[in-house]
Each structure stands twice: as structure tokens, then as C-alpha cells.
């Protein structure tokens, strides 16, 4: 009999979910732009069940992760997002030893061993610089959608220098650049480099070990990925499931727990 498990990742700006069959086959995924404190997490569960045709009872185990994990009551267990991103990244790229996860409000770098176990990690300090929030703030000033940043950066012939120290300072810098008639693509490329510089420094503190992959919402942005690859001097693996990596890892953890429970129950 098949074992279905669910992983839910409740972030600061989005909620994501994955249903796995037997710990290896992705049955269903869902993402909504509504994070912790909203109806997003509930919707994720409903939509996952609807699209998979499964019922609540058929889900053997659910693990919740992410910023909003502590207030979600429908899971069997909760785990930190670092453990889930590590697990999900190892599933997607077994050869990866360094995972860089840039989420809505924080950035994390994880070191993995060959079995995908996390052997060390670092989180950013209490500043939005180098996070998805930073990109949102910058996109707002430029009257762009975050999803347009990649395209804009790709059109740039050069990158303008933007501070990576502080979001508020960087915001002032971008406004000054706009006032001086700066080229928008060059400005966007500079913004992507700013994120890469901040996160790259964090990654270098842990010690880069190849291969490197990116997870989290910001991984979708090719401009940041490219800038980060340049900053670290290495290729960066990326999966279209990058934003779902935490939820995927949670579903794998759920499968491991469900099968361990089964073995225990005999």
C-alpha cells in the first residue's frame, strides 16, 4: 500500500505544500502568496488534497516547517526550515554540499554531508538586506513586480553599485540614483548584486563546498542566482521546485517518520 505524506512550509510571505508518494514521488504541489497569520496555510492543505484526489485520512503523516510552523495545528510534527531545506535540497541534488536558502525575510546557508545531514549552518542577522524583502522594497521603488527583476537585470550592460549593508540605506541610494536618471536595468543588476554580496559573505563564513544549490523564493530570480554564482566563483544548481524545497523536505521527513512509526507499531 502506498504511503502519502504531506509537507507544509509556512513562510513570511508565502505558504507552500507538497504531497509525496512513498517518500520519493511528487504527487502534488501548491504555492500561495499568503504566509503566516493568513488563511494561506489552510488553503494549501485543501488545494493539495483537491489536486491529488486524496483525503485527509489517506495522508499518513504531515510535517510543518517555516516561520509560521508553531501556530499550525494540523500537522503531526514541526521541524525547523533549515532541516527541511537541507533534506529537500539533498533529494533534488544529492551531490550538493552547500545550500543557500534566501526566503522572504531571512537568508540561510547550510552545509550538508554526503548523506544529506546538516553539519553546520548560518543565518543572516536581523536585517532585511540580502533577503526577499529587500528585493520587494527595491521593486516597489522602481514600480516593478519582483518577477520582472530578472528580465530587467538581463538587459543591463553594467551594474550600478548599491549598498549591501542596510535596506534603508540602499533604498535611499536607489532613490538618489533614480533622481540622477540612472538606467533601470543597471540599477536592478546592482540590486541583485547587493543581495548576492550580502548572502555571499554569509556563505563564505560557513566555507563554500561544492556543489552549491539555491532554494527559497529568491532562487527563482535569475539575476540574483547569476550574481551569486559570480560572487562565489562557482556554479549554482537550481530546481524549478526551489521555492518548494522546504515543503518537499518536510514531506520527506514526514515519510521517514511515518515509516519509522509503522516499523515501531509492527
Amino acid at each position: 500500500m502506498s504511503c502519502y505524506t504531506m509537507g507544509i512550509d509556512i513562510g513570511s510571505t508565502t505558504s507552500k505544500g507538497v504531497i509525496l508518494k512513498d517518500g520519493s514521488e511528487v504527487v502534488s504541489t501548491y504555492l500561495i502568496h499568503a504566509g503566516t497569520g493568513t488563511k494561506g496555510p489552510g488553503t494549501v492543505r485543501e488545494e493539495l488534497l483537491k489536486s491529488s484526489g486524496l483525503t485527509n485520512e489517506e495522508i499518513a503523516y504531515t510535517v510543518v516547517t517555516g516561520y509560521g510552523r508553531k501556530t499550525y495545528e494540523e500537522a503531526d510534527a514541526q521541524l525547523s526550515e533549515l532541516s527541511c531545506h537541507a533534506k529537500g535540497s539533498h533529494f533534488l541534488f544529492p551531490e550538493v554540499r552547500t545550500v543557500i536558502d534566501i526566503g522572504g525575510q531571512d537568508a540561510k546557508v547550510m552545509k550538508l554531508d554526503e548523506e544529506g545531514r546538516m553539519t553546520g549552518f548560518l543565518m543572516n542577522d536581523k536585517c532585511a538586506a540580502g533577503t526577499g524583502r529587500f528585493l520587494e522594497v527595491m521593486a516597489n521603488i522602481l514600480q516593478l513586480d519582483v518577477s520582472q527583476l530578472e528580465e530587467e537585470a538581463a538587459r543591463a550592460e553594467e551594474a550600478l553599485k548599491i549598498s549591501s549593508t542596510c535596506t534603508v540605506f540602499a533604498e535611499s541610494e536607489v532613490i538618489s540614483q533614480l533622481a540622477n536618471g540612472a538606467d533601470i536595468p543597471a540599477l536592478v543588476k546592482g540590486i541583485c548584486r547587493s543581495v548576492a554580496s550580502r548572502v555571499g559573505a554569509l556563505a563564505k563564513r560557513t566555507g563554500i563546498e561544492e556543489k552549491v544549490c539555491m532554494s527559497g523564493g529568491v532562487a527563482i530570480n535569475g539575476g540574483v542566482r547569476e550574481a551569486l554564482a559570480e560572487e562565489l566563483g562557482t556554479e549554482i544548481e537550481y530546481s524549478p521546485l526551489a521555492q518548494l524545497t522546504g515543503a518537499l523536505g518536510a514531506a520527506i521527513h514526514a515519510y521517514e517518520r511515518a515509516t519509522a512509526k509503522e516499523r515501531k507499531d509492527g
Binding site: 521541524l79 525547523s80 526550515e81 533549515l82 532541516s83 545531514r117 546538516m118 553539519t119 553546520g120 549552518f121 543565518m123
Partner: peptide, 10 residues
Amino acid sequence: ATIIESFKEM
């Protein structure tokens, strides 16, 4: 809390 929880899991 997230750092310590991840540390525990590690």
C-alpha cells in the same frame, strides 16, 4: 529559536 531548534535537529 529557529537557530536553536535547527541546532537540536542537527
